[in-house]
Design a protein around this nucleic acid. Sequence first.
DNA 1: AACGACGTCAACCGCCTATAC
DNA 2: CGTATAGGCGGTTGACGTCGT
Length: 282
Amino acid sequence: METEMSFLSKSSSSSSSDDDIELRRGPWTIEEDKLLVHYITNHGEGRWNMLAKHAGLKRTGKSCRLRWLNYLKPDVKRGNLTPQEQLLILELHSKLGNRWSKIAQYLPGRTDNEIKNYWRTRVQKQARNLKIDSNSAAFQEMIHSLWIPRLLQKIQSSSVTPSIQSSQSSTPPGFSTSTSSNSSSHSCSIYNSPKITSECPKIPPREMDDSDLNSFVKAHFPFDNSYEMDNFGQLATGNFNDMMDYDQMSGDQNKLTGDVIADSFWSNMDEFFYQKTGYEQL
DNA sequence: AACGACGTCAACCGCCTATAC
DNA sequence: CGTATAGGCGGTTGACGTCGT
């Protein structure tokens, strides 16, 4: 790690002129993380350039801010996105486009960076494989008529597993827990699929303000941190102590819960597309 | 075992906007 | 009003891990 560290002369920066210290770049060390967390715990966040200096970090304010928001902040969630979260991202992206920070506002504990990475590595990959422009109407259609119903189905079928089963309240509104016999044909008209259940989340109209979006998300994707913690246990491991043993958390627990669902979902997706569309797989 | 291809994701870059002066 | 600075955002990069051959 340390060997990859590079430096940047601060003299080129217009934001500070007092000394010509070299700024570190590249991966953060545990020591740097500790300094940053300790400083923010005692003094709060903000004024990042000053913070970096006072915390004794040879980093730009921007770098500190990013490290804190995307990694160190206690409520940052780790682990694969749950099907609910994936569903919400698909929905919100269709409304908001590449406004990642806006989308992230509706996914507690998830960062814009994470959502952006998810979109580029998972969703855009599928578009590439299908040779469809991910911004095209055809791809949007694909998402709404195939992916989203499939995700809803996944959510529903996994509602009997511990990952989705609510420990204290009910299944989130918008997701049926009904054990009705024809659940396998579950789909939703709003996604241009042939069959309807009234429990599907309704896509808000194209033009929405923040309160519209908030209402939609609250009504249909009501997972907050406590809900996620209840249901996914170690999945939400965003505190500093846990962060300090990331070696331990690589895999085991995650694979027991939401990750299984997410992994199998994506691993099945290629096959699913092929069946539904006849598109050649690459 | 070695190697290359590919996927993931943390981190950086450059631009834009808001705010202070 | 104009300029400087900080913060925020989306796009991109590159290190590293995994998988297939």
